[in-house]
Simulated assay, not measured.
Amino acid sequence: MMAILLGTQLLIGCSQRESSSSKSNETLPSPEQVQRVELLNQTADDMYNKVMQGDITGGRMVLQQLGDQVTQIQYYGIASVEGMNALAETVTQAKRAFNAAKYSPDEGQVYVAKIRLATDALTHTNQPMWLQYYKLLIEDVNGIERSAVDKQKQGLTQFINQLAQHYAVIHPSLLISRNPGDVEQADSLMVFLSNQLRSDQDPYSPVTSVITPLRQIIDKLFLKKDAAAYLPIVDQQNPIYWTLVLGSFILAALAFAGWRLSRKDNGLVPVRKKDEA
Score class of each variant (00 low, 15 high):
Leu87Cys: 08
Leu251Trp: 05
Lys225Ile: 09
Leu11Cys: 03
Ser24Ile: 14
Val91Phe: 00
Gln216Phe: 02
Pro232Phe: 03
Leu246Arg: 06
Arg96Phe: 10
Gly108His: 01
Glu184Pro: 06
Glu139Lys: 15
Lys225Met: 15
Arg17Thr: 11
Pro128Ala: 13
Gln64Thr: 02
Gly267Ser: 06
Ile73Trp: 07
Val110Phe: 03
Val207Arg: 07
Ile56Glu: 02
Gln65Ala: 09
Ile115Glu: 00
Val37Lys: 00
Ile170Val: 06
Arg198Trp: 09
Ile56Pro: 02
Ile233Thr: 10
Ala252Val: 12
Leu251Cys: 06
Thr208Arg: 15
Ile240Val: 13
Leu11Gln: 05
Asp45Ser: 07
Gly13Ala: 15
Asn99Tyr: 01
Gly181Lys: 13
Lys95Leu: 09
Tyr241Val: 04
Ala94Leu: 01
Leu66Pro: 02
Tyr241Trp: 04
Asp150Thr: 14
Met1Leu: 15
Asp265Glu: 13
Ser248Thr: 12
Leu28Asn: 11
Asn99Ile: 02
Val51Arg: 00
Met47Ile: 10
Lys225Asn: 12
Pro172Gln: 04
Leu10Lys: 04
Gln33Ala: 02
Pro31Arg: 02
Pro206Leu: 05
Thr212Ser: 12
Val34Arg: 07
Ile240Cys: 06
Ile4Asp: 12
Phe249Glu: 13
Gln154Met: 15
Ile250Phe: 01
Ser19Phe: 08
Ala148Tyr: 01
Ser21His: 09
Arg178Ser: 05
Lys95Gly: 02
Gln152Ala: 05
Gly59Trp: 01
Val149Asp: 02
Leu117Lys: 10
Glu184Val: 03
His171Gln: 13
Leu39Thr: 08
Asp235Ile: 03
Ala113Asp: 04
Lys225Ser: 15
Asn41Thr: 13
Asp55His: 01
Tyr75Phe: 11
Ser147Ile: 03
Gln127His: 15
Phe222Gln: 04
His171Ser: 10
Val271His: 10
Val210Asn: 00
Ala121Tyr: 04
Asn161Ala: 06
Leu137Lys: 03
Gln74His: 07
Leu189Val: 03
Leu193Pro: 01
Asn142Gly: 09
Leu244Asn: 08
Ser262Val: 13
Glu139Asn: 13
Ser173Pro: 01
Lys23His: 11
Ser248Lys: 14
Pro105Arg: 11
Ile12Ser: 14
Leu261Gln: 13
Phe192Glu: 01
Ala186Glu: 06
Ala121Pro: 10
Thr27Val: 11
Gly54Ile: 09
Ser188Thr: 08
Tyr48Lys: 01
Ala252Phe: 14
Gly77Cys: 11
Ser21Ile: 10
Arg96Ala: 11
Ser248Ile: 11
Leu6Asn: 06
Thr27Asp: 08
Gln72Lys: 10
Gln72Trp: 15
Ile240Trp: 06
Met190Cys: 11
Glu26Arg: 07
Ile160Thr: 04
Lys220Ser: 09
Leu223Tyr: 07
Lys114Ile: 10
Ser173Leu: 05
Ala121Ser: 06
Gln236Glu: 06
Ala277Cys: 14
Val70Glu: 01
Leu137Ala: 03
Val269Tyr: 03
Asp265Asn: 14
Gln237Gly: 08
Val271Trp: 11
Trp130Gln: 07
Gln162Phe: 12
Glu139Ala: 13
Ala88Val: 05
Ala277Phe: 14
Ala252Pro: 10
Ala88Gly: 06
Leu63Gln: 00
Gln162Ile: 02
